[in-house]
């Protein structure tokens, strides 16, 4: 079974608390071998607070061996991650799954 998160259009300081609550509620536990799909289809804007949530999520997913899957990742998100030196942490395989190294 895989969990799914839809990122809002504006994933910034005003939205991070809601997103966090919703993701935290559905985040699979350790050893569940589940995947977490992050749908970026609606995403239009992200700030450093949004990136921080993604960084924490990526870190915890790695710890819990949950496969993170970004869907419909927009180019600007890659650019923002790049600008913050976080692109490597979200390096995705060709099938959109985050590599856990």
């Amino acid at each position: 079974m895989s969990a799914r998160v839809d990122l809002p259009a504006e994933f910034n300081i005003y939205a991070v608390a809601d997103v966090w609550r919703s993701v935290n509620a559905g985040l699979p536990g350790a050893g569940s071998s589940d995947a977490l799909a992050i749908d970026c289809a609606q995403l239009r804007e992200i700030d450093a607070a949004g990136v921080q949530v993604l960084l924490s999520l990526a870190h915890t997913a790695r710890q819990r061996a949950i496969a993170l899957q970004f869907e419909s990742m927009p180019a600007f998100l890659s650019e923002r991650l790049q600008a913050l030196g976080a692109a490597d942490l979200f390096a995705t395989s060709h099938d959109g799954e985050t590599r856990h190294e």
Binding site: I13, L27, T60
Partner: peptide, 21 residues
């Protein structure tokens, strides 16, 4: 640019409105 991930708490302990960057 290298972001420091170590200071960022685990997701369940994260206060998303606090900056740990």
């Amino acid at each position: 640019v290298r972001v420091l991930t170590e200071p960022i708490p685990a997701f369940d302990a994260l206060d998303p409105e606090s900056c740990h960057l």
